[in-house]
Amino acid sequence: MADKLLLEIVTPVSKVLSEEVDMVVAPGEMGEFGVLHNHIPFLSKLKVGELRFKVGNSTRYVAIMGGYAEVLPDKVTILATAAEEATDIDVIRAQAAKERAERRLREAKDRVEFARAQAALQRAIARLRVAEKRG
């Protein structure tokens, strides 16, 4: 089996994950990118979306609320604003957040409000999409 890499996901309030994995696919700002062992050092901004990683034959999913990724040959560090593994996502809450965001989007009066609602909606959608993929 190929060499593993260490995936670490940290947020300001917790260390979400620290595990040896085979492959990581992260939502880079300029498009999704995959990382295997011995990747060239790489630093990227992340957008709101889904990060997945493979350990053996299973794939797991994490919802990432934007942040940064630093890739070293044997290590991937994700500095996320917030992150939740698929199995930890509260679907009902995420659904409620989505509806709230949609309502705010409709009622937004200026550009700032609109942008905020849009960002909230994106986060809610990302969470729901990831939650669907729990095994």
Binding site: P41, F42, L43, Y68
Partner: peptide, 17 residues
């Protein structure tokens, strides 16, 4: 000699960070 790839550019990233 650790050369990094930056995405987006180095300057944009730093401005953001």
């Amino acid at each position: 000699g650790r050369e990094y790839i930056f995405e987006p550019s180095h300057q944009e990233l730093l401005n953001d960070l």
